[in-house]
Design a protein around this nucleic acid. Sequence first.
DNA 1: AAGGTCCGGATTGTTGACAATTTTGTCGAG
DNA 2: CTCGACAAAATTGTCAACAATCCGGACCTT
Lengths: 223, 223
Amino acid sequence: MDSAQSAGTLLAGEEGRQHAIARLRQAIVSGDMAPGQRLVEEELAGTFEVTRASLRQALIDLTADGLVERIPNRGARVRVITQDEAVAITECRMALEGLCAAKAAQRVTGEQARTLTRLSDELRAAVSDGEPVRYSELNRELHRTVIDISGQEVARDLLARLNGQLVRHQFRLSLRPGRPQRSLPEHLEIIAAIVARDPARAEEAARDHLRSVIRALTQEEPR
Amino acid sequence: MDSAQSAGTLLAGEEGRQHAIARLRQAIVSGDMAPGQRLVEEELAGTFEVTRASLRQALIDLTADGLVERIPNRGARVRVITQDEAVAITECRMALEGLCAAKAAQRVTGEQARTLTRLSDELRAAVSDGEPVRYSELNRELHRTVIDISGQEVARDLLARLNGQLVRHQFRLSLRPGRPQRSLPEHLEIIAAIVARDPARAEEAARDHLRSVIRALTQEEPR
DNA sequence: AAGGTCCGGATTGTTGACAATTTTGTCGAG
DNA sequence: CTCGACAAAATTGTCAACAATCCGGACCTT
């Protein structure tokens, strides 16, 4: 493979689009681009070294994911997700992840149970070692695993979209001092309920956890 | 087929796209196009009298809505929604409409309560008059009203997408003999719980109702 | 000076042609 | 008769130029 990024040549076609999507998403999620900032097609196409068509498609795709807002004839801006919206999104996650936790408890296999138990240990370790970033990763992995076990592909797609919009809020939240300590027991309870194959308890645990996330969001630090 | 409009002129741009989306959606949900049927861009652009670009955008939009399936370099087909998928979708509706019902019970105003009560009466009337189509319309209106009262816009968007995929199944279901008689009390209970401003009861009622829909779906008539 | 109108620059939207890809059809070898 | 390779056709994907639209500011009118 060649490193087609040399000056002068710009990526085209499918490759270009994927590249543009990745770069844009990264830029938005990491906060390199301020919320509300205008996204001028030609300008971005230049900086990412893709054709304008590729970048245009990328904008459309990200609009479907809720990361970008497009107004006809007026262009695109990075979508601002207010705290109220973050709460509303988390409420929907509560409903859907509750469903997934319940189904996961019904369907979990022995091997999957072992994976969950291992995650359990790693979460505990990350907290006691004081590694919030590691904890945040494991957190995401746990949610992903539960959804995976549930086999609910429709919910998985909906949740993927919701989470995409939340990445920034989630990240800020996980770095709040004391937050891992508070959420750890909630996560452990979700795992325990699924391993115990108790759907009602698993659903309640998942919902309790996200209720707690909502509380934390509404008590957002005053900046 | 149809004689379309005037010969020779084909719609373009935004107008063309909207037209194409409307016609295509109509054709798919009404069953004019068999599930799995190939959707050739040029061919459809011809019959709908829009440019290929417009139709292409329409296909992309409908893909986002889950009505069409697109495979790179291989074209689009109308997406088949299996019974299992219909069940999975309804499970997600269960989670999300449960949330909306609960929030609606918290936020309902006096006027909204009166609207719901009126709907209650109309639903009863439609059943006792034996008008399944009217009942189906009122049914959709009820669900829409509840979501509206809840003020949960995120859930509203997700549900809109899910319902778009289900239209056909829902329609078939509502025409099953005896189905309105069975679902009427469930609908009435949802309304009663919201009017009584009891979130937990409203959530449970909404979930019970959709649980019943799932049961009906899995006992689909054997054709 | 207030209000309205009309250009100018910038940006997005669309189109028609062309390139890339997949599928179909044909033919010959085994 | 079956299988595989090759070529032709059909279809989708991409691009670069062109057209439509919008915002801001200068200019004119009253």
